[in-house]
Amino acid sequence: MTTTTKPAAPAPATAAARRLGPTGLALRQGRLEIRQFLRSRESVVFTLGFPLIMVLIFASIFDEEIAPGVDYTQYFITGMIATGLLTVSFQNLGIWIPIERDRGVLKRYRGTPMPKWVWFAGKVIMVLVIGVVMTALLLAVSVALFGLDLPGTATAWLTFAWVSTLGITACTLCGIAISSLARTARSGSAVVTPIALVLQFTSGVFFVFTRLPDWMQQVAALFPLKWMCQGLRAVFLPESFAADEPGGSFELTRVALVLGAWCVIGLVLCLTTFRWTTSRDG
């Protein structure tokens, strides 16, 4: 995915801005990032529209049961929620940050008195807001058109919250980290999109995970998307489906541990690899 929208330049450090506290600075930067995202029609359509379009297509084609009381649509929707969170965070950041770096936006931010963490906070706020909107749209369409049953207990909603939070945190950090691999603005999509697509096909999004080859399951288990999908299946699918999972249960403890580990890994990679300037800037 490419875009020609010009990233917003850093706001000047006015006296009013300097009087803002940490929360105010983060929220202001978050609003700026959200406005910048909304100005790019390509990003909005791809991020919010892709999961909805995929659900409409696959749910209309496949209507068979994959387990007693579980049809393909129920299974697929859980995977698309996870994919949507991956797209909002990992894929969008991995594509957009190289564009901002290549156009000198990050270099200008680095040269302002604004604390560097404010820029990262703005990205996180943008990802969270767009992620919530995307998830709400996906759930609304799935309930209205395909009869998706929403979680009926507070425990299930709590599981939904922590799986989504850990998952989008891990993907956000990894998206910021992988942005350093792109040498130019144009190469960001070429670096990130293939990785995202491979993870979707191997993590049980489009196909029932246990029907994939064993080696593919083992590879997918190394990355966050597989565990995001598994955690969300625990929320939206009946308890009886747990027997069809690789470990014979939804393994929510392991889901939390793996996603938490990826949050740590992503943070370390961000701290050690992130670049504010391109190689030609020195």
Results as ranks from 00 to 15, higher is better:
7 P>M: 07
17 A>R: 15
19 R>N: 12
20 L>N: 05
20 L>H: 06
24 G>D: 02
25 L>I: 07
31 R>Q: 12
32 L>D: 13
34 I>W: 04
63 D>I: 12
67 A>M: 07
68 P>M: 08
71 D>S: 11
73 T>L: 00
77 I>N: 05
80 M>C: 05
81 I>K: 05
86 L>P: 01
91 Q>H: 06
94 G>D: 02
95 I>D: 00
96 W>E: 04
109 Y>C: 05
118 V>I: 12
120 F>I: 13
130 I>A: 05
130 I>Y: 00
131 G>D: 02
132 V>P: 01
133 V>W: 02
146 F>C: 08
147 G>H: 09
149 D>E: 14
154 A>P: 01
160 F>T: 04
174 C>G: 10
174 C>A: 13
184 T>H: 01
186 R>M: 11
187 S>F: 03
193 T>S: 11
198 V>T: 13
204 G>V: 10
209 F>S: 06
223 F>C: 01
228 M>G: 03
235 V>L: 08
235 V>T: 07
239 E>W: 02
252 L>C: 09
253 T>C: 00
255 V>K: 11
258 V>M: 06
259 L>G: 12
260 G>A: 09
265 I>H: 03
266 G>D: 04
270 C>Y: 08
270 C>T: 13
271 L>H: 00
271 L>T: 05
276 W>Y: 12
281 D>I: 10
